[in-house]
Write a protein that binds this DNA or RNA. Sequence first.
DNA 1: TAGATTGTTAATCGATTAACAATC
DNA 2: TAGATTGTTAATCGATTAACAATC
Lengths: 211, 211
Amino acid sequence: MGGNQEVIRRLAKYRNVMQKMKALGLVKVFSDNLADACGVSASLVRKDFSMFSITGNKRGGYRIDDIVGKLNLLLGKDKKQKIVIVGCGKLGQALMNHNGFPRVGIRVVAAFDSDPEILDAEAPIPIFHVKRIREYIDANKIKVAALTVPEPAALGMVETLKKTCCRGVINFAPIALKGADDFMIQNINIEQEIENLFYNIHFAETHRPGT
Amino acid sequence: MGGNQEVIRRLAKYRNVMQKMKALGLVKVFSDNLADACGVSASLVRKDFSMFSITGNKRGGYRIDDIVGKLNLLLGKDKKQKIVIVGCGKLGQALMNHNGFPRVGIRVVAAFDSDPEILDAEAPIPIFHVKRIREYIDANKIKVAALTVPEPAALGMVETLKKTCCRGVINFAPIALKGADDFMIQNINIEQEIENLFYNIHFAETHRPGT
DNA sequence: TAGATTGTTAATCGATTAACAATC
DNA sequence: TAGATTGTTAATCGATTAACAATC
């Protein structure tokens, strides 16, 4: 993928924190403040900014407005980010109505399913048959799709999407799809994260008794 | 957290791949095969195994049955992993019915919400009022909860859970909750992952034209 | 045996941190 | 000015990879 994933996550975190600071009436911020708020070191904050040519003032810190603007631009937040949902099961429906999306400028513009029963072209977020997905995506220049189809269908759907102008998916099927430079894949494996949690808890209990 | 997150993810991946190999009738596997299947190097596979005292046979590779068993034990897959859902919005309901869970030995045993309308103590997965959560968790020795409450409620719920025998949450609220050694938190920030995708796509298009 | 693969040690790589000169 | 903070360079740290002796 494009360089380092972690630094992008941190930039988004910095932005979120600064937006909250701004809401509080703050105007400037030091690398030290951001570091505390985000649980990283001040060096790293400055290094991250410097990597993306985001500069502040010696002695004066960073102007919040300034930096938030630059970060938004960098993260593509200057335009609405349109996505489609592929697979209208429970999870797909949850995403269609997810109110965290509008808040950050992400808009679900359509959904697709193979079950004719649930199609509804007139709904606020229309649900089309998956056979129409290539046509829709290209016509609407969609770049990102959320995959909430069953595992056996996931790989095939990625192959279909690769033939469109869509350039990335967020995959919720419990299968690690491999991305590439020209087609990005973010896997979200809920089962995996929960297993991880159990492992870490078990590990902590076993290896650090009474800490 | 307990050491390195990535290595645990890889171990789970190795196990998943080996389970599929086993289903195909294979009996043994070389580090090289696993490396190819998981997109890592053979050195790393061997190093990962060695870190957890998982050994094979020089010349003979690894016996799949053997290793899968050891990995399952390591990942806590020898027992059912019980979780509760906190927050029965769309996402919470999707998780309650998520059929990826039973398949990997995770069981949703109860859900909690503050809306009296949707409570149902008699459902296959009972939905109780959140005020009963501490009592329930301690009585049933629940270690892990999935948090699908609105952002403003997330932090308070974590504080409540810390007072119980629950020792970790998977958090779907778009706020980065900080974990600790005695209380693990896995944040799943869907908005964040999608923003990431847009950034990476944008970056790839800008920095590698025509690749 | 000869050949192939593990397990481990040493080398490499990349990311984070520490330090500090520049400077507001 | 004196003090504080940035921006950047050098040092550190940890994870991955390469190499290879041990050995099946």
